[in-house]
Design a protein around this nucleic acid. Structure first.
Lengths: 218, 218
DNA sequence: ATGCGTTATTTTGTATACAAGATAGGAGAG
DNA sequence: CTCTCCTATCTTGTATACAAAATAACGCAT
């Protein structure tokens, strides 16, 4: 690991990683002096990093009161997932239009991996490959701003663990949705791809709802 | 004007204003020392402000080389407007579902103003009221994250002047679209409202294209 | 013992000082 | 006269020091 970039950028990267890995928990307060000492840097670049993360929505800065890791409520998820559904749906639409034989091969290879990990009940790898698949699709769509918007929201969603795949039967559903998506892409059926992707995202939200209500009971 | 917030926040607000008013032009380089002196603050809070504006996409920071006002290319607009169309379309959809008699009255009042300023050929006021109308619709939809996403993109679009209304006949078209939107809202026809709003945004892009090609000729 | 007010301490916000990389200008060689 | 390399200067990046606000602690009165 080469430390070539600025300390501010390094701090941003590291804190993001800590937030995503839940080493820093939503709602938690960050002490500047302590964090700076921990990272081995001064408060100046650290504060710049905090401002950046705040602008990204991962932190909330309360003036004169400190910096807190952002929290997503169920109500937030109810808003964010439908937006993601639109954006990712659009990606699927554009990708279907642009998909050449080579790109389809690459996507299909990723899809095969999904099938494999699903069969092996390996939720973590499935999740990971799923992420790569969506990423590959975005690259194929080649819409930088769409990618940017989706990336912003995806970052926010990583604030808490949303492992809807752990819900009984959800992984199979997810896999079926991916299968249908691949079929639509191979048919170059852009509207179908869009619709399937939308429903894929909305199904995730639905699964999360079911998990939440189950936890309330328990 | 009370200076109660932090110097960083004040710097953010002021610089944003300068960018939006085109006192700072896309591509322009910002000298930290000079800017700090100009604002009467030190470089510490100024740099925090620059990081925030960079995260918002209004500035680009090239490490060790300085800070530049962001530029939007026609290609960027081709990507951003369709995304705006989706998001604002969704706002119209949700607003149509939630619209009560009082809210419809308020929107109608704003629409009347639009009609008035259009008749008076007052492009600036039309633009302003148009903005308020879209804002009121977002408030009515009551979807904070949707509002947030749209706000982010709208900020970017303000980097350069996109006065599509100045194009021959465009203002009349725009007005007709608004009229159709109001009608759909009053009918509580959410899908129609969504479609009209989408087309309203895409028509703006189309007008911008026509303006660009006309300028190329000239 | 509890509630309030005052003081002490911690923590954020800002300014200044310094280090290192980038730019510009000039001197020397071809 | 032009190109290159070296040096001087400027600019960004970082650390430290200080001011002001917020929190915590303590004592006092009820």
């Amino acid at each position: 690991m080469i430390n070539k970039s600025s300390l501010c950028q390094q701090a941003v990267d590291l804190l993001r990683k800590r937030i995503f890995s839940h080493a820093l928990l939503p709602g938690q307060r960050l002490d500047e002096a302590a964090l700076a000492a921990d990272l081995g840097i001064s408060r100046t670049p650290l504060r710049e990093a905090l401002k950046i993360l705040s602008a990204e929505g991962l932190l909330h800065i309360k003036p004169r009161r400190g910096c807190f890791v952002a929290e997503l409520t169920p109500a937030d998820l109810e808003e964010i997932f439908p937006i993601m559904a639109m954006l990712e749906g659009r990606v699927a639409y554009e990708a279907a239009l642009k998909a050449g034989p080579n790109e389809l091969k690459r996507l299909d290879a990723l899809h095969e991996k999904l099938e494999k990990y699903a069969a092996a009940r390996d939720v973590d790898r499935y999740y990971e490959v799923n992420y790569v698949f969506h990423d590959a699709l975005q690259e194929l769509a080649g819409n930088r701003w769409l990618q940017h918007m989706i990336g912003d929201l995806r970052k926010l969603l990583r604030l808490s663990r949303h492992r809807s795949l752990k819900l009984e039967g959800r992984q199979l559903e997810s896999l079926a949705e991916h299968r249908a998506l691949m079929a639509a892409l191979q048919r170059r059926d852009a509207p179908a791809a869009e619709e399937i992707m939308k429903n894929h995202l909305l199904a995730q939200l639905s699964a999360l709802r079911r998990m939440a209500s189950r936890q309330e009971v328990a």
